[in-house]
């Protein structure tokens, strides 16, 4: 549910802080996943240029990085929308209509899951249990939790996040 920061524009490069983090972890065994978490926390995804840099700094093949990134659902290779929507599809939310929320959301956004809207404003993904099943069905936008969501309320909720 990390509050994805707005990724900086232009070509993505490791910042001095990120480089320092990598240096700190370099000698620790099993560091790759922790490094990738930090990179994604900053950029909101794992930019290709940055993956090259990480491979260089950790002195590991690029293929190893992509092997790990593609195995784990949490890591994203595509830049998410300015607003990140997560719809819970855990069991409790599924039973209480999570699927209908997704269908309605796709209709409103005009794009499917895991795709950024043409204006760059939104992207939506399905996630597993967010840990507040009592509020099912649950949706999270930029870290803000919405419980007992009704499909009719979606337009209004999204409007709050739209620019302008």
């Amino acid at each position: 549910m990390s509050n994805a920061p707005t990724p900086p524009a232009g070509v993505q490069k490791l910042t001095p802080e990120l480089k320092a983090f990598i240096a700190e972890w370099k000698e620790k065994p099993g560091n790759l996943i922790m490094v990738l978490h930090r990179v994604q926390q900053f950029f909101g995804y794992i930019p290709r240029e940055v993956a090259f840099e990480v491979a260089d700094l950790l002195e590991i093949p690029l293929a190893k990085i992509y092997g790990v990134v593609t195995f784990y659902n949490f890591f994203k290779l595509k830049k998410p929308g300015r607003n990140r929507i997560q719809v819970c599809m855990g069991t409790a939310c599924y039973l209480k209509g999570g699927e209908d929320i997704i269908a309605e959301l796709e209709g409103i956004l005009g794009v499917g899951l895991n795709t950024v809207t043409p204006d760059g404003e939104f992207s939506a993904e399905a996630v597993r249990c967010l840990g507040c099943c009592g509020l099912a069905p649950v949706m999270v936008i930029n870290g803000e939790v919405f419980g007992k969501v009704k499909t009719e309320a979606l337009q209004g909720i999204l409007a709050k996040f739209r620019k302008g």
């Binding site: 996943i33 922790m34 978490h37 784990y72 949490f74």
Partner: peptide
């Protein structure tokens, strides 16, 4: 005389 360290490692949604 007993020493013990704990470190956190993050999963990534698998």
């Amino acid at each position: 005389g007993f020493s013990f360290e704990i470190e956190i490692r993050l999963g990534a949604g698998a």
